[in-house]
Computed example of a mutant assay.
Amino acid sequence: MPAALPSSRTGRDRAVDSMLADSAGDAAFATTLAKGLLVLEAFGAGSSVLGNTDIAARTGIPRPTVARLTHTLTELGYLSFDRGLAKYRLGVRALRMAHPLLADMPFRQAARPLMQDLAASVRGTVSIGLLDGSAVVYVETARSGDVGSHVPDIGMPITVVATAMGRAAAAILPPTEAARFDAQLAADDAEQWSRFGENYLAGIAQCADRGFCTCLGEYMPAIHAVAAPLHYAANSGRAFAINCGIPAFRLQPGQLEAEIGPRIAALAASIRALINEAEPEISRRPAPAAEAR
């Protein structure tokens, strides 16, 4: 099994860097705005307080430019300055931006009680994720008391390539998008694709054949997960998946595939029935190279 992912910049970060470079000659592209948003995205779990030097290192934006951006964002309320630490935190105004997006997903409220029941039953976490480039972002989560080292929260991004939820969400992209999406994943992070690409493609095949896919500690060694496609909103291009993560020591051999997988697929079907969504179609990919030979 491949080693767990290191703690580093995500594929989403690299995609943004590439976008800035590719847009250098686009007169309609607001580069300063893009850099300001990149400064806001530099803040994440475990990095709630950052100085200008920290932000410059994380984003690749020169420190003098970062200083101007953080000053402007502070004046607007999207950052706040901690005088004791001489560093910045996200401001409350930044939180306002999330509410309209979450409010546009009312199915979360209908799904939450069902998610909580399964989480309590298996003593793990059950979460819904939304595909966002080479990341999938939690938009709802439920958990039992002690879920181990990984505690999902709304707004938290995880990689697509090395997670069950990412693979399940990518599985329901329209066929016209799927090949381009996979190629972009490989281009954004060639090292990660070389380590997990075959497992990613195999996970999509699992979704097609069984309605769910598994991930046995690839993202976090202590957590084994299973995920199912939830639904694809054609009008907005949003792909949702639902997963269940359980500390590995709580699982019996084969339990994830034989019991938890069918339960997460059934939960996805129940949520779709509540919100009158059809079962999404799986975009089958070519077989991984190892299977094709």
Rank of each mutant, 00 (worst) to 15 (best):
E291L: 15
G51F: 10
G36N: 04
V160F: 06
A4G: 00
D22K: 14
R180C: 03
F81N: 00
H231E: 07
S127K: 05
A241G: 05
D146G: 03
R284H: 01
T31R: 14
L267H: 06
Y232S: 01
M97T: 15
L130G: 01
A228K: 05
Q252D: 11
G129T: 12
A266H: 10
G60N: 00
A205K: 13
V16K: 05
R238Y: 07
G155N: 09
L131K: 09
Y200V: 06
S8K: 12
L201Q: 09
V147S: 01
L256Q: 08
P175G: 14
Q252M: 11
A3T: 13
T53N: 11
G11C: 01
S134V: 08
R285A: 09
P221L: 13
R272P: 02
A183D: 12
A234P: 11
P2S: 12
P174W: 08
E259N: 13
D189G: 07
S8Y: 01
Y78A: 06
Q192T: 15
L76P: 03
L73Q: 01
V66I: 15
Q255S: 10
G46H: 05
S144M: 06
Q206P: 02
R58E: 05
N235R: 13
L131N: 08
R63A: 08
A30R: 14
A162L: 05
A186L: 08
D82N: 15
R93N: 06
A28D: 02
R285G: 00
L230R: 02
A269M: 11
A234V: 14
T31N: 03
D13M: 07
P280S: 07
R112N: 12
M220N: 07
D189E: 05
A258D: 10
A45K: 13
L114V: 09
I172D: 02
I275F: 02
R68W: 03
G11D: 00
P6R: 09
A30T: 08
A34W: 01
